[in-house]
């Protein structure tokens, strides 16, 4: 059973492999320019495990930024993760170190897979979630290490490979629609995302859009609760 679970998880996470290895390598190559040992790139993949934050780290390290500044910038950059937990809290049954590791490894891609896919028949949901997270981190650490180790010797001839990540999110969005059968949250997100991107902010697009989306969802839920017709019909 274990072999076939690994097989299922590998198939589910393969798009992440194609996304994380080139992205991790890009980070590793940038990092190697700083002159540190390549093992530190591995360590960053193991301990930080956050794509955007690690790219940011290269810039901060080069500028010898202060630790408080680094803490605040990293926290703000990753603050979208706050909302991943809100969506997952009722679904995550793991306890102890398993729970710790699942929360630690909650990247955009892991979150997307955990909310869109399920354990195969007869397999414990927690075990499936753990493997997905572990496989994803494995790809990321591999990419970081390879990039820093090979350094400037490699040149990417894989223009366009970065498209796998939006393609993955797209497929997962379609799968979510198949389960939910409500178009409203999708239409809402398209409208909000495009409006924020085009009219408000490029850099903070994701965070601002998430905040507006949550507000709209909560307002909708609140309005439903206070709708007088609903009490009439009860």
């Amino acid at each position: 059973m274990s072999v076939s679970l690994n097989h299922t998880v590998f198939k589910a996470t393969l798009p992440v492999l194609f996304g994380y290895v080139p992205l991790g390598m890009a980070f590793g190559v940038l990092f190697s320019d700083l002159g540190y040992h390549w093992l530190f790139a591995t360590a960053m993949g193991v301990f930080i495990f956050a794509g955007a934050a690690q790219f940011l780290a290269v810039g901060l390290l080069a500028n010898q930024a202060g630790l408080l500044e680094i803490f605040i910038t990293t926290f703000l950059l990753n603050s979208r993760h706050l909302f991943y937990g809100i969506s997952l809290i009722s679904r995550m049954k793991a306890k102890g170190w398993r729970r710790f590791y699942l929360i630690f490894g909650l990247t955009d891609e892991t979150f997307s897979l955990l909310t869109s896919t399920h354990a195969p028949e007869g397999v414990d949901e927690t075990e499936y979630q753990l493997r997905v997270t572990l496989f994803n981190q494995g790809y990321w650490v591999l990419g970081c290490t390879l990039g820093a180790w090979l350094g400037g010797q490699i040149s990417f001839s894989t223009a366009g490979i970065e498209f796998v990540l939006p393609a993955l999110f797209m497929v997962l969005a379609i799968e979510q629609y198949r389960h939910l059968r409500h178009a409203a949250p999708f239409v809402m997100a398209i409208v909000i995302g495009l409006a924020v991107l085009l009219l408000i902010s490029r850099d903070q697009m994701l965070l601002i859009s998430i905040l507006i989306s949550i507000s709209v969802l909560l307002l909708y839920k609140g309005g439903e609760r206070w709708n007088p017709y609903r009490t009439l019909s009860q």
């Binding site: 909302f83 991943y84 809100i86 969506s87 997952l88 809290i89 009722s90 679904r91 955009d108 979150f111 997307s112 909310t115 869109s116 990540l165 939006p166 999110f169 797209m170 997962l172 969005a173 979510q176 629609y177 939910l180 409500h182 409203a184 949250p185 999708f186 809402m188 997100a189 398209i190 909000i192 995302g193 495009l194 991107l197 490029r202 850099d203 697009m205 994701l206 859009s209 998430i210 989306s213 949550i214 969802l217 909560l218 839920k221």
Partner: peptide, 21 residues
């Protein structure tokens, strides 16, 4: 529970758009 049901679809769409920011 409501957010857990309706927020992930919205986040997935936002992640697609964000990839092209």
């Amino acid at each position: 529970t409501f957010l857990g049901r309706f927020l992930p679809p919205a986040l997935m769409v936002l992640l697609v758009i964000c990839s092209f920011k």
